[in-house]
Design a protein around this nucleic acid. Sequence first.
DNA 1: CGTCGATAGATGCAAATGCATGTATATCGG
DNA 2: CCGATATACATGCATTTGCATCTATCGACG
Lengths: 153, 153
Amino acid sequence: MSTKTTGSPVRLAAETWESLFRAQVAVMRRLQAGPAFKSLALNEYDVLFTLSRCPSGWLRQNELNDHVLLSQSSLSRLVERLEKRGLVERMPAPDDGRGVLVRLTEAGWELQKQIGREHVRDIASLVVPALTAAEQQELLRLTEKLRASVAAR
Amino acid sequence: MSTKTTGSPVRLAAETWESLFRAQVAVMRRLQAGPAFKSLALNEYDVLFTLSRCPSGWLRQNELNDHVLLSQSSLSRLVERLEKRGLVERMPAPDDGRGVLVRLTEAGWELQKQIGREHVRDIASLVVPALTAAEQQELLRLTEKLRASVAAR
DNA sequence: CGTCGATAGATGCAAATGCATGTATATCGG
DNA sequence: CCGATATACATGCATTTGCATCTATCGACG
């Protein structure tokens, strides 16, 4: 084992992050090349996906913003576009006059499921040959731990 | 151990990727909020960083494109902007009349080092409290293995 | 209640991005 | 050597993005 990393903890952390980032870029590049993202950009799919995981169906726009790497204004317009395409619908938040709730329409659900299936296939074709199941479990654990720690500060 | 993941290998792969992606988003969000990215966008810094790691100093534009999550045309213009700001310089590739070589200028080197230092500090402040050194080593190993496998197909 | 600072979201505008395409060079098959 | 196809990069153009700012509402406090 042990990719040799010189000395300091700071350096190890930086190299770890860089490796994570590069892996993400490499995988994402492949995914975007696939046919699954022809009809929908990554960020747009990400919003549909996040909405599809939401138990109540409705999600506040600012909560959506935590999941997507986009500024508030960009997300606002992205949701607006999705609404124009009939994939999501918006309504004013009942308990907060400033807020907006968003959820998938029937069409949005359909598209999410369809793209999601292709997407999952593409992912598996990249990840399965790369790592054993045990390694994937461990990678899942470590990234989740990292995410939780970063989110919680 | 073992975040429980239901059954299928395909599903495990998808969950692993999603977790990796979410971790990347969470960390990146923090990094972009820091002062290190005030003067330079992520992709711009990424180009300077990649150039700074290149042994010969010169790098082909299409090689740069492999490291950055950007279309060819966008990278072309990004490099053009960096050139206008005096951070990189371009010259026609001697062995290939279609190609362009890029390298850091002195100013580019300085800025990369300066931002790089802040950047590394920010990363460490997020990663060090999240994972033990052994976990970071393992995360580094797994992401590098994933990246290499994906790149090699 | 009325004021004040904070938060949610929308919008004007300049900049960045991607797609399609253009130009030039390289490479391959005859 | 010639023509055909592929590759590297640039550019026109429409779309998307972020920053700054605006409006409306919320929550706290006198």
